[in-house]
Amino acid sequence: MAGLGLSLLLKLFCSLLFLSTMAKPAFARLSRSRAYIEASCRTTRYPALCIKYLSSYANTTSIQSPEQLAHLALSVSIYRALYTRNYVLKVAKELEASKVRGYQVVKDCLAEINDSIEQLSQSIKELHHLGLEPVGDDFFWHINNVETWVSAALTDASTCLDEFPVGKMSKLKATIKGKVLNVAQATSNALALFHRYATKYRATRATKKP
């Protein structure tokens, strides 16, 4: 488990490094990055959260394309998932040791979060391949893979949320549900931003067909 977490953190670092290599120090450029992020985030389901998480990177990274924004959004999503996984894992161990009721629910949720992290990891790796390939049939195959994996990651997070009741619950369970909801919302936003990126290239390909 620790090895998996380290591997994912390294992938996350590489993804953010990819973005940072595109950075330009000009203040006007960074202002345009913030404006671009804010405008793009308004098309997502949770725009306030999207702007909150992504705009902070505009201070160090120039974001001016759907591809860059998709990389950033997916990196943020997996970071939130890893953070939440560590918290839920800690809680699960404490509940198991004390034999408190509710351990199974938390354990099941943890399994869903782990699945979500794996799907997001695959999507980030696949998105990296997209930047290395020319637009063609294989390119769109990679796009479909990313969309499938991010959708699956969102489903996993939503399944975890379904484990918790809608009404009154303990403070601990409410905290877990809040953190997982945060992951689901960040992933939903990432999926929406990736859809914008994918739509751009599908439209480009369609206009080139005879």
Rank of each mutant, 00 (worst) to 15 (best):
P25T: 10
E118Q: 13
D115Y: 02
S65E: 14
K177C: 02
E38F: 09
L120K: 09
A186L: 11
C160W: 14
A174K: 05
T60F: 03
T21W: 12
P134M: 06
H128F: 15
L16G: 00
L191Y: 05
L74T: 07
L4R: 08
L120E: 08
Y36V: 04
A28W: 02
L72P: 03
P210I: 06
H128P: 01
R205M: 13
V76S: 01
V183L: 07
D156L: 08
S75I: 04
G102P: 02
Y197A: 07
Y57K: 01
K208S: 11
T61P: 01
W149Q: 07
N114Y: 07
Y53K: 15
R202E: 09
A190C: 01
L74C: 04
D138T: 03
V150N: 04
G3D: 08
F13H: 08
S62P: 00
L54D: 02
D108G: 15
V183A: 09
A48H: 13
A153H: 09
E94R: 12
V180K: 04
P25W: 00
Q68S: 11
S65I: 01
A190L: 01
S15P: 00
G5K: 12
Q185C: 02
G102T: 07
R32G: 05
Q122A: 15
L30Y: 01
E38T: 15
Y57A: 04
A92E: 14
A81E: 11
C41G: 05
N145E: 12
A174T: 04
K208R: 14
C41H: 05
Y79M: 12
T84L: 02
S62D: 01
L17N: 03
R29Y: 03
I124W: 00
A2W: 02
L9K: 09
P66D: 05
K99H: 13
K99I: 03
Q185K: 14
G178S: 14
S151L: 08
M1V: 07
D162M: 10
Y197G: 02
K209R: 13
V76P: 00
E96D: 11
I37S: 06
A2M: 06
G131V: 03
C14I: 01
F194E: 06
A184F: 06
D162T: 11
N182K: 13
P25F: 07
N145A: 10
S77L: 12
Q64V: 10
P25C: 00
V88R: 03
L54K: 00
N182F: 10
D115K: 05
